[in-house]
Structure formats: structure tokens, C-alpha cells
Amino acid sequence: MRYDVNLSILFTELPMLERPAAAARAGFDAVEMWWPFDGPTPADAELDRLAGAVTEAGVQLVGLNFDGGHMPSGDRGLLSSPATSRRFRDNIDVAVGFAERLGCRTLNALYGNRTDDTDPELALENLALAAKAAGGVGATVVVEALNSFENTRYPITSSAQAFQLLDQVPGTAFLADFYHLGRMGEDLSALIANHADRFGHVQIADVPGRGQPGTGELDYAAILRQLADSPYDGHVGLEYKPVGPSEESFSWLEAMP
């Protein structure tokens, strides 16, 4: 398996511009991140600084979120509400351009929390716009399901709901986040056996605390062996909250495929 580090949740004891180098020192050659800027259209200088930090560290950016709103306040995407749609559309070309610049081929579009003005047709339209733009640079837009315990207003909480959405938008794929799916009680072995060919990316953390594998209930040795034998050939993103310092949270990898 090929593993990458999510710099938005690991190495957070460091400024973002120092995290790519920290990942490289820890032995990783690939990273991913949530949208790391305050708004949808950051200044060129901000984009340049982050691109430079990734390039200088010698790591590959393999996953990037579109702007999802103010995540610390509970926002979980901008696709589905008229109030946030313009912000998402403003971000499409910026995010796709940044991904192209760094050779990133996976862009994650969070659907958005359920609100009084949620518009499923608008969400489909925005997802299609993002998929078309991403496809133009050889990238794929992925959509994930989130668990309802922590994301009470997020409407896509199962792989079945995600697949139903993805079936309506060509050029998209499933982000199989085993932490969220595990929290929702999904059979991860069956999901891999039946749908790994639809995975555009995989992310992992243990259940229920979202720590590194080995701190919870999931048998990641078995899960990742099965994934390694499946049609999925992409990276596995480490998107966990480390129990202890980030650089000391990777010993579990020694027993993994």
C-alpha cells in the first residue's frame, strides 16, 4: 500500500508551511490536505508559498479538498445551498489550478450540511461543474459519507447514499473514509469486496476516537490486506488525530501491507 499524511489533521503542532517537510522527515513521500486557506480565492502569494513548501519538501500532493466553508464552526461543504453556491463556484478554478500545479489528481467536494434551503439539484449542478473542471486537468472529484454522530446535519452518511449521488454525475468517484463508515456500522470488508473499483481515494482512522490504527476497534491489518488485494491502487490517507505527538504515531505501519 501507498500511504499519505493529511496535513490538516497531523503535524498540527507546526505551521502549515512546515508540515510538508515534517511529513518527509517522518518517511512519507505523499501528502493531502483540506482546503488550507481562509477563503475560496486566496492571493497568489499564499498559493505560491504553500506550493513552494510542498515542492521543496519533495512530497507529492495526492489529495485536496475544495473549499468547504469554515470547518471549525461546523461547515461541511458548499455544494447544496444557494447561500454558499457562489463561494463554491468561485473556488473551483482556484482549487483545480492548484491541484494541476502540484500534480494532484484527487479533489474532494463536501456536500454541505442540510439547511432550510438545501437544493439537491443545485448540488448536482455544482458537482458536475467541479467534475468537468477537474477532468480537464486529469483529476477526479470524490465525494464522501460522514458519520452522523459528529456531523448531525450532513445528509450523506452511508456509502449507498454517496453512490446514489455519484451515479448522477459522470467523472466522479467515492472517497471511502473508513473512519466515518466504521462509525456508521458499515461492513468495510463487504464494501471493499463489492465496490473497491469505485474508490477514488481512501482515508483511515480508528473507531470510535479517530486515533491512529490500533487505538480502537477496527482490524486495520485485515482491512488493509484486503484493500491491497482489491482493484483499488491509490493512496491511503492517514486522516487521524494522533494519540501523542504526530511523529510518534506511525509505528502501526510496520505491521501493515
Rank of each mutant, 00 (worst) to 15 (best):
V141P: 04
V143I: 14
V143F: 02
E144G: 10
E144F: 11
A145K: 04
L146E: 04
N147D: 10
N147G: 05
S148H: 15
S148C: 11
F149I: 13
E150A: 14
N151Q: 12
R153C: 11
Y154M: 05
P155T: 15
S158L: 06
S159V: 14
A160L: 11
F163S: 01
F163Q: 06
L165N: 04
L165Q: 02
L166H: 09
Q168Y: 00
Q168C: 00
Q168W: 00
Q168S: 09
P170R: 14
G171Y: 12
G171P: 07
T172V: 08
T172F: 03
F174W: 15
F174Q: 05
L175C: 02
F178G: 02
F178R: 03
F178Y: 03
H180M: 01
L181P: 01
G182I: 02
R183K: 14
M184G: 07
M184R: 12
G185Q: 10
E186I: 12
L188A: 07
L188W: 08
L188K: 13
A190F: 01
A190L: 12
I192E: 01
N194P: 00
N194D: 15
N194G: 14
N194A: 14
N194L: 11
A196P: 07
D197W: 06
R198F: 09
R198Q: 13
G200W: 10
G200R: 10
H201T: 03
V202E: 01
Q203I: 08
Q203N: 08
Q203Y: 06
I204S: 07
I204M: 06
A205G: 04
D206C: 02
V207Y: 02
P208F: 10
P208S: 03
G209Y: 09
Q212S: 05
P213V: 14
P213K: 08
G214S: 13
T215W: 09
E217K: 06
D219C: 00
D219P: 00
A221M: 00
A222I: 00
A222V: 05
I223T: 08
L224E: 03
L227C: 08
A228P: 01
A228C: 02
A228W: 01
D229M: 06
P231L: 07
D233Q: 15
D233I: 09
D233N: 15
G234E: 05
G234N: 03
H235T: 15
V236H: 05
G237K: 12
L238A: 14
L238V: 13
E239H: 06
K241Q: 15
P242L: 13
G244D: 10
G244C: 07
G244W: 09
G244K: 08
S246W: 11
S246K: 07
E248I: 00
E248H: 07
E248S: 07
F250I: 08
F250W: 08
